[in-house]
Structure formats: structure tokens, C-alpha cells
């Protein structure tokens, strides 16, 4: 009888706890996470060849965020709307991106790129990392590839904060 009472107690405990434990493998809704306005915080240029050859930091990376006094890259922001549209504000920055249009992930289950489109043009943003999206931070990347060797030569990383 004592054993039965112990087993029942454990069973009741387990059942009562199940609501608090999230389902294992439940996927984050990336689209929901992306919706909002993202302001550029930092813009970095990386020489991938120098990085591969273990050059010192000053010859490998360059922070371009405020390199142009009157044209700070921090002027840039992009808004992803829930209805699938987007708008960008470039301010005085030299960022060349579509002003408005529609946006979509390349793969809704495991997105690695954001596809921007308006009537006549397409642009692709490579998502550098979703690691900190729960902290409202995300990284976008643009990689320049040598036309001849197809080797990756330069990487531009956009660090953005959701505002």
C-alpha cells in the first residue's frame, strides 16, 4: 500500500509538471523574431585572405562604422513588417540597399538568407547569425568572391539592434 501511495505521488508530480516543460525541438518562429526595425550598430570589413594567412588584427579587420565623418553607417536601418513588406532608411550612409519592397526567407524552416524584392530588383542578405536574436541583435553579411578563383575575399558584417 505504501508503495502504491509513493508511485501515485510521483505520477501526480510528473503530470503536474508537464505544462511547464516546453516541447523538445519546438522551433523558434524566425519570421516573428525578424519583424521590427533594425538599426545598424556596427559595420566591419574583413580581409578574408589576410585572416586565412593570420595577419595581425589591424591588417585583418577594419571597423567602418564611423569611417566617413559625415556619412556614418549607423544612419542605416531596415524594417521588416509582418505583412511581408520592408522599408530601409539609409540616411547619409553609403549603404546601397533597396528602399522598399517585399521580404522573405530563403527557407522558412532553416533560413540563412533574406530575399528582398521590389518591382525590378532583387537583393539577398546573408544572415550571419541568429545566435543573439532573442537579445534583439542580429548579424547580416555580404561576402565578395573573386570572379576568377571563386575564393571568398572580403566580408562585410552588419551588426544590427532591434529598436
Amino acid at each position: 500500500m505504501k508503495n502504491l501511495i509513493i508511485y501515485l505521488s510521483i505520477l501526480i508530480l510528473i503530470i503536474s509538471c508537464t505544462d511547464d516543460i516546453p516541447e523538445i525541438g519546438e522551433k523558434a518562429n524566425r519570421k516573428e523574431q525578424m519583424v521590427g526595425t533594425w538599426q545598424l550598430e556596427k559595420f566591419v570589413q574583413t580581409d578574408l585572405k589576410a585572416k586565412a594567412n593570420a595577419y595581425p588584427d589591424f591588417a585583418t579587420e577594419k571597423d567602418l562604422t564611423n569611417i566617413f565623418e559625415n556619412n556614418p553607417y549607423t544612419d542605416f536601418s531596415i524594417s521588416f513588417n509582418a505583412d511581408g513588406t520592408f522599408t530601409t532608411e539609409t540616411g547619409n550612409s553609403f549603404i546601397d540597399m533597396l528602399e522598399a519592397g517585399s521580404w522573405a526567407f530563403d527557407d522558412n524552416d532553416a533560413p540563412s538568407k533574406i530575399l528582398l524584392q521590389n518591382d525590378s530588383e532583387n537583393q539577398t542578405i546573408v544572415i550571419g547569425s541568429f545566435a543573439n536574436i532573442i537579445y534583439n541583435k542580429i548579424e547580416f553579411k555580404i561576402v565578395k568572391v573573386d570572379a576568377n578563383s571563386q575564393k571568398e575575399m572580403i566580408n562585410y558584417t552588419y551588426y544590427l539592434n532591434k529598436i
Binding site: Q45, D47, K49, A50, A59, K62, L64, I67, F94, K144, D146, M153, I154
Partner: peptide, 9 residues
């Protein structure tokens, strides 16, 4: 960068 195109910073 050490190698750079005409559209790069």
C-alpha cells in the same frame, strides 16, 4: 583589404 574591387571601401 589587400585585394579590393572598385566597389569596395
Amino acid at each position: 583589404p589587400t585585394s579590393v574591387s572598385n566597389t569596395d571601401v
